[in-house]
Design a protein around this nucleic acid. Structure first.
Length: 763
DNA sequence: CTAGGGTTAG
């Protein structure tokens, strides 16, 4: 008997512990574990004689027919003056009852029978009812119902009851009720734990503003519920979440909160600090990131390497070498060990700034431990350096570095090969690139789409479109699929050689194999088709682009406007302009220059000038290209005086300086109109103004001089060409060969050509 | 750490 009693008592105690609301974990609220670290204080254990009273009362209440025989006993037990009474007595009885409904009956019994209506006692009894209900099936509905009941009966909530309700209401997504509980709860009862739960629930429901209000209150000086570490955890975890359904927090708000929390002695933990710095740097707020990190450093918060690395990444992107150095020095001073990532960031920055030799030196120092810490370079670091070497045309050294990395037990991976393949492709050494490709396959380092695109692009850029296509097909049958970039590269290459049919064929192929085109694929085709004058096809692609849900951008509209102009379809061009306006795509200087060029070339100088005024009104300043278009058009329309007037006006005004193209237009035009003298004076003008002639300038001059047979002047220019290392093209050679042979000056021609051979071998 | 693609005008 004794034994069974004590064992039942043990199990009761165990049960009671399990039933404590703070220890019941709810799986959907992972933070609860955190929240439980500071629960509301548990009630003190009841005195021994009270315990038996509670047991007795529970027995009476649970007896099946207690109504008549038990009620007298019960009344005596609970309300006689000889009974011990403690404020938690009724709650403890209620807690041990079988169900919330039974407990509610008990509550009613007390409310109608107790001689004195002690509100606090009633509240705490109702808390027990909430606790029971929270562990029963359909707890949400029951709790909501009980909450309403408590309001009807004017029973104030206890702090634990309110906490329980807020969680439950949160799970039921009932924001108004959550706020109701928070407002209703007596403010003297509120504590930090309760506020944390409210904030957590509000954030989870997406009501960041409401949560923010609660946080603000907590951050007031002398607040009743000052924030603790858990508050910080909840708030910053929520603020740093990637996307917000209702609103996003801007960096300033977050940084403001960080410093306010800091004043209360609450700091972000290390991962969150790193996350915040990364976010700030990504938003180009490196200054603020710098301040945040240094603020934490100064206030004695913990700063780990990862946070410094995050800031270094931002500084590296800004090319802020000064602060990069400062930060690394600080790290060493503060005993924050740089790691392989830290050095990787530094080396990457040096390589990107084409300071590869410094980066290589740094690698050696790093290995030797003279940078404060000895760190073994990893594959990423070697790849960074190999890429750096390749990007400055030192791919052979990149290759040697790959050998060296092998010696250091670092295995090259796909990225290593991709960097080298790109290096050799850019250098035009396509064969070597292919060899590397074969080598990687042999080593079972598998190529990826970057490898494919690099090689395809390399071949296309070096005029080997057919090989590129063949390679692409081979890869596809080997299971390496092309992506939108691969197709863009090939389509572009075919457009460049004016093979529009092939370009379209690849576009159709990509649709067929299920590779979804992105906007750039469409833009590429529109550009290619417009340039080729295939405006019907271009319009067809535009429709497809729109069907796919993309929009045209300014560049594409410009291509189309230009295409329609070239086909003399001014109405279609204007249609495009109208569409641009409707779509809110702003015309830029290209748009206006295209129009001005077309209008003036077709003799519509008046309208061209109207467009130019509109351009200025829209805040786009006419450039040298705009004036070039007008000058060109006046020349084409045999109004060289007008063209020369614009040129002189330009020369006297300082904003727009004539460039080589302007001079070329005029020189070409003057030569063709038998005014070689004026053309020559323009050549002289160029020399004075420091505008370099190019092969087009010389070709125009040679033709003009040939027509007037001005040999001496031609020889002068030939010498200047050699001097300036301006290479002749086939036009130059054709004109000079014909002319100089006819006048018996082949020797001069020979010297001219040899001049280049000499300067080529010596340079 | 690697490619990334369409840039239109005289």
């Amino acid at each position: 008997m004794n034994r069974s009693l004590s064992s039942s008592k043990q199990s009761q105690l165990l049960l009671l512990r399990l039933l404590e609301p703070q220890t019941s974990t709810v799986p959907s609220y992972s933070l609860l574990r955190h929240l439980c670290t500071e629960p509301n204080p548990p009630p003190p254990p009841p005195p021994q004689d009270e315990d038996s009273l509670i047991t007795k009362a529970v027995q009476l209440l649970q007896a099946p027919e207690n109504e008549n025989s038990g009620s007298t006993q019960l009344r005596q037990l609970l309300f006689s003056s000889s009974s011990p009474s403690s404020p938690g007595l009724f709650r403890q009885i209620a807690r041990r009852l079988n169900s919330s409904s039974q407990a509610l009956k008990f509550f009613d019994y007390i409310q109608s029978n107790a001689p004195s209506q002690d509100l606090h006692s009633l509240s705490s009894t109702f808390q027990a009812i909430f606790e029971l209900a929270s562990r029963e099936p359909n707890s949400q509905e029951k709790l909501l119902e009980l909450y309403r009941t408590s309001k009807e009966r004017n029973v104030p909530l206890t702090i634990n009851g309110a906490t329980l309700l807020v969680r439950c209401l949160g799970r039921a997504r009932m924001v108004d009720e959550v706020l109701g509980v928070a407002n209703e709860l007596d403010s003297s009862l509120k504590n930090t734990h309760f506020c944390n739960v409210v904030i957590d629930v509000l954030f989870r429901l997406g009501y960041a503003d409401y949560a923010h209000n609660v946080v603000d209150e907590m951050l007031q000086p002398n607040a009743e519920c000052p924030p603790n570490d858990i508050t910080g955890d909840i708030v910053f975890a929520a603020l740093l979440r990637r996307e917000w359904p209702r609103r996003t927090f801007n960096d300033e708000e977050i940084v403001g909160l960080v410093s306010k929390f800091g004043e209360c002695g609450v700091f972000l933990d290390s991962p969150k600090l790193t996350q915040l710095i990364t976010k700030l740097c990504r938003n180009r707020n490196t200054n603020r990131a710098w301040d945040v990190l240094h603020h934490v450093m100064k206030s004695g918060g913990a700063v780990e390497t990862a946070s410094c690395n995050a800031l270094l990444t931002g500084l590296a992107r800004d090319e802020d070498f000064e602060r990069m150095n400062k930060l690394t020095t600080e790290m060493i001073q503060m005993d924050i060990q740089p790691n392989v990532v830290t050095f990787g960031i530094l080396i990457n920055r040096m390589c990107k700034s084409r300071r590869v030799d410094e980066a290589l030196e740094f690698l050696e120092k790093m290995k030797g431990g003279s940078e404060g810490v000895s760190v073994e370079p990893d594959v990423i670091m070697y790849n960074t350096l190999i890429d750096g070497l390749c990007k400055v045309g030192r791919q052979e050294e990149g290759l040697s570095l790959m050998d060296q990395m092998r010696l250091n037990k670092c295995v090259p991976n796909t990225v290593t090969y991709n960097c080298l393949i790109d290096g050799f492709c850019k250098a035009g050494e396509i064969e070597r690139a292919h060899e590397l490709f074969d080598q990687m396959n042999k080593e079972r380092v598998f190529p990826n789409s970057i490898t494919l695109n690099t090689l395809v692009d390399g071949m296309c850029r070096h005029g080997r479109i057919n090989s590129a296509v063949e390679f692409f097909n081979d890869m596809q049958s080997n299971g390496l699929k092309g992506n939108a970039v691969t197709y863009t590269t090939v389509i572009k290459a075919f457009c460049n050689v004016n093979n529009i049919d092939k370009a379209m064929e690849f576009f159709n192929q990509m649709l067929k194999v299920g590779c979804t085109p992105d906007a750039i694929v469409y833009y590429t085709l529109i550009s290619g088709l417009s340039l080729a004058g295939r405006m019907d096809d271009a319009s067809c692609v535009v429709s497809k682009l729109k069907e796919a849900g993309f929009c045209l951008d300014t560049v594409s509209y410009n291509n189309l406007v230009s295409g329609f102009c070239k086909k003399n379809k001014l109405d279609r061009a204007y249609e495009m302009l109208k569409e641009m306006e409707q779509a809110g795509v702003k015309p830029d200087s290209f748009t206006y220059n295209i129009l001005i060029s077309y209008l003036s070339k077709t003799g519509n100088f008046k309208i061209a000038h109207t467009v130019m005024r509109k351009m200025v009104k829209e805040g786009i300043v006419p450039t040298v290209v705009t004036y070039g278009a007008l000058i060109h058009a006046y020349c084409l329309n045999n109004k060289i005086d007008k063209a020369m007037k614009i040129f002189r006006d330009l020369s006297s005004a300082s904003e727009v300086a004539p460039n080589t193209v302007i001079y070329n237009i005029l020189i070409d035009s003057l030569c063709k109109n038998n005014d070689v003298e004026l053309a020559l004076s323009l050549m002289h003008d160029m020399k004075c103004k420091g505008v370099r002639p190019n092969i087009t300038t010389y070709n125009a001059m040679f033709k003009g001089l040939r027509d007037k047979n001005l040999l001496e002047k031609a020889f002068e220019l030939m010498d200047r060409m050699v001097e300036q290392a301006c290479n002749p093209d086939y036009i130059t050679m054709e004109v000079l060969t014909e002319w100089l042979s006819a006048v018996g000056e082949t020797g001069k021609l020979k010297n001219f050509v040899e001049g280049y051979e000499v300067s080529a071998s010596s340079g």
